[in-house]
Design a protein around this nucleic acid. Structure first.
Lengths: 108, 108
DNA sequence: TTCCATACCTAGCAATACTAGGTATTGGAT
DNA sequence: ATCCAATACCTAGTATTGCTAGGTATGGAA
């Protein structure tokens, strides 16, 4: 379970450069040191949701000698959303950390 | 949304000493610096789930001059589960951190 | 005596991510 | 030549989760 942070992860995976779904899955697996080995049934619907929400846009691309791929890239709104998600992750993880360590969190 | 980490948070809130539901909610709010201001409809069912799962046990207690409370404490299994949750949080947060920073996570 | 904080509870809903299926292409191994 | 693995896309349905929105009741302060 990715626990509501899937969107942030997918957006972050697209921050450097546009990519297609299958490559995004690989990137996530690599960067997370295999902690996140996401099934396609998780990622593809997420990409559709994010595009629907205007955070991503996609183009069908057929590379020479290859097969057609749907390449996603961040929209301006997507860049903003990623920044927001990063902040919200910071607050969230800090609070969980405090709980698990039995101390008070920094007052935000 | 607490994103699947509610159980860990509740267990951690009970680590120091037994407590009743309402107090647990307060503890979580305080320790998280109000980041987690959980509605009762979230916490009470979670306590029931955790008790059902054998991670908590409860007793009805009526303090002198007060009203009856249901006081929960960690079972042995609960202590173990909390340790497990802590480890799993560590892996999870490290992986998310790596994703959001665009670097590779430490190979676990 | 009225209201707020305390203290418990539940049914039903919405979101999320997963399972389990499906289609099709490319390239290497047999 | 054929088969299989990896690539590459998709969706319907399901389980879990946490929340909304309601309910009950007591104790103390205004």
């Amino acid at each position: 379970m990715l626990k509501g942070h899937l969107d942030a992860i997918v957006l972050a995976a697209l921050e450097g450069a546009p990519a297609h779904g299958y490559a995004i899955i690989e990137t996530i697996k690599t960067r997370s040191a295999a902690t996140f080995d996401l099934p396609e049934g998780t990622v593809y619907p997420a990409l559709h949701r994010l595009e629907q929400a205007g955070l991503l846009e996609s183009d069908w691309v057929t590379p020479p000698g290859g097969r057609r791929r749907r390449v996603y890239s961040l929209t301006k709104a997507g860049v903003g959303a990623l920044a927001e998600r990063r902040k919200s992750w910071g607050r969230f993880s800090q609070a969980v950390e405090a709980m698990l360590q039995g101390r008070r969190a920094w007052p935000a």
